[in-house]
Design a protein around this nucleic acid. Structure first.
Lengths: 130, 130
DNA sequence: TGAACAAGTGAACGCTTATTCATATATATC
DNA sequence: GATATATATGAATAAGCGTTCACTTGTTCA
């Protein structure tokens, strides 16, 4: 989960667009309303962090209560190293926060958007494959 | 975006969990509440589809109005082939639907969850990096 | 002080994925 | 029928990602 700008591979905006499209008016309007590539990239990184089964299972547990790395690993049957790597990714995207008590790190969800996205995703899943 | 079950690489649930965790009661409770791996995998695929700048830009346009492949490509400065590939992925996950008029395919968002996820994601983005 | 242990990290391996190029399919127009 | 065009698709390549393994850091407690 490297947080960096994706190399721009899109073709330069040129007149060919005006020529090769079917509804020039719709295209012109759409081009103004399109999400800028930079914003789309930032947003994609949030969804990218949510797009892993292990991380989603971590979120499902942290939605209930804060837990330490060790207990997360035990509850999910993952290695502590794997959990720690995933938490790092989630920390960098501000999906989780943590507090330290001695050598133990207690993790919890960072804000309500995370659990909302999680819940909304589950809703959609229910509609798509009930 | 191949929709298939991820090979299970997690360790089998064994007694080591009871031994190596710090708060056994919390772990026991958490293990019951954890999202099953299969559900987590299904859900991760939805977020995976949302986790690409090109697809998010397509969604941002389709949230306004239906558009054909050609116009989407023109508006986003992408090749028609690339757009078609992405629409295929989004179609398979039921994020978009389409109708055909002759040789032209008009795409639109499949249900309100998609635009809700999109909007909620943007909200979170606003909180994280305002 | 030193052993035990929770957590974090870097490298590496195997797998996934987005784009491009070439081509196929299907429809409209001549 | 023949041509042009809108879309779909398959193969290939390059980039990205999740896990494991080995190791480091920092804290607790005997």
């Amino acid at each position: 989960m490297i947080i960096k700008q994706k190399k721009s591979t899109q073709a330069p905006i040129s007149d060919t667009c005006e020529i090769n499209c079917i509804h020039p008016a719709a295209v012109k309007q759409a081009r103004d309303k399109a999400l800028p590539l930079s914003t789309a990239t930032d947003l994609s990184q949030i969804f990218q962090v949510m797009a892993d089964p292990s991380r989603l299972r971590i979120i499902s547990l942290l939605a209930e209560r804060e837990l330490c790395v060790c207990d997360l690993a035990a509850a999910l049957g993952m290695s502590r190293s794997a959990v720690s790597h995933q938490l790092r990714v989630m920390r960098m995207s501000r999906l989780v926060k943590y507090r330290k008590e001695g050598r133990i790190a207690y993790y919890s969800l960072d804000d309500e958007h995370v659990s909302k996205l999680f819940t909304l995703g589950l809703d959609h899943l229910g509609h798509v494959s009930p």
